[in-house]
Simulated scan of single mutants.
Amino acid sequence: MIYDFSEGRGGQHARDFLGKWRGKLVCDDYSGYKQSFSISVAEIGCVAHARRKFVDLHVAGKSQVAEQAIELIGRLY
């Protein structure tokens, strides 16, 4: 695992850090990575971030399947 800090949230910081590296990147939906996904970096979504969306839907009562999704994701952990 690698962590890189930058002062801003601009996509150029992510591109500078990744450079010519090609592989699979586990990340949230940060838009700064999007350009890298178009040049041979594979996006692997973060399950914890996806789960949060289901929790929001469940709390708001806007989804009949949100609770089931939360339970299924819980089994992964």
Score class of each variant (00 low, 15 high):
residue 1 M to A: 14
residue 4 D to Y: 12
residue 5 F to Y: 03
residue 7 E to D: 14
residue 8 G to C: 10
residue 8 G to Q: 14
residue 9 R to V: 11
residue 9 R to G: 14
residue 9 R to K: 03
residue 11 G to A: 13
residue 12 Q to P: 09
residue 12 Q to E: 01
residue 13 H to I: 04
residue 14 A to P: 00
residue 15 R to I: 02
residue 16 D to R: 05
residue 16 D to M: 03
residue 16 D to V: 07
residue 16 D to L: 13
residue 17 F to P: 00
residue 17 F to E: 10
residue 18 L to G: 02
residue 18 L to M: 06
residue 20 K to Y: 04
residue 20 K to I: 12
residue 21 W to T: 02
residue 22 R to W: 13
residue 23 G to T: 09
residue 25 L to C: 10
residue 25 L to V: 08
residue 26 V to M: 09
residue 26 V to R: 03
residue 30 Y to W: 08
residue 30 Y to A: 13
residue 31 S to T: 15
residue 31 S to A: 09
residue 31 S to I: 13
residue 32 G to D: 07
residue 33 Y to P: 08
residue 34 K to C: 10
residue 34 K to N: 10
residue 35 Q to N: 04
residue 36 S to D: 10
residue 36 S to R: 00
residue 38 S to P: 09
residue 38 S to F: 13
residue 38 S to Y: 05
residue 39 I to E: 11
residue 40 S to V: 15
residue 40 S to D: 08
residue 41 V to K: 07
residue 42 A to M: 02
residue 42 A to I: 02
residue 43 E to S: 11
residue 43 E to G: 11
residue 44 I to R: 06
residue 46 C to R: 10
residue 47 V to M: 15
residue 47 V to H: 12
residue 48 A to G: 07
residue 49 H to C: 04
residue 50 A to D: 00
residue 51 R to F: 04
residue 52 R to T: 06
residue 53 K to F: 08
residue 59 V to Y: 02
residue 59 V to C: 02
residue 60 A to E: 00
residue 62 K to C: 13
residue 62 K to L: 11
residue 65 V to L: 04
residue 66 A to R: 00
residue 66 A to Q: 00
residue 68 Q to G: 04
residue 68 Q to P: 00
residue 70 I to R: 04
residue 70 I to Y: 00
residue 70 I to E: 01
residue 71 E to S: 09
residue 71 E to L: 10
residue 74 G to P: 00
residue 76 L to Y: 12
residue 76 L to F: 11
residue 77 Y to K: 06
residue 77 Y to R: 09
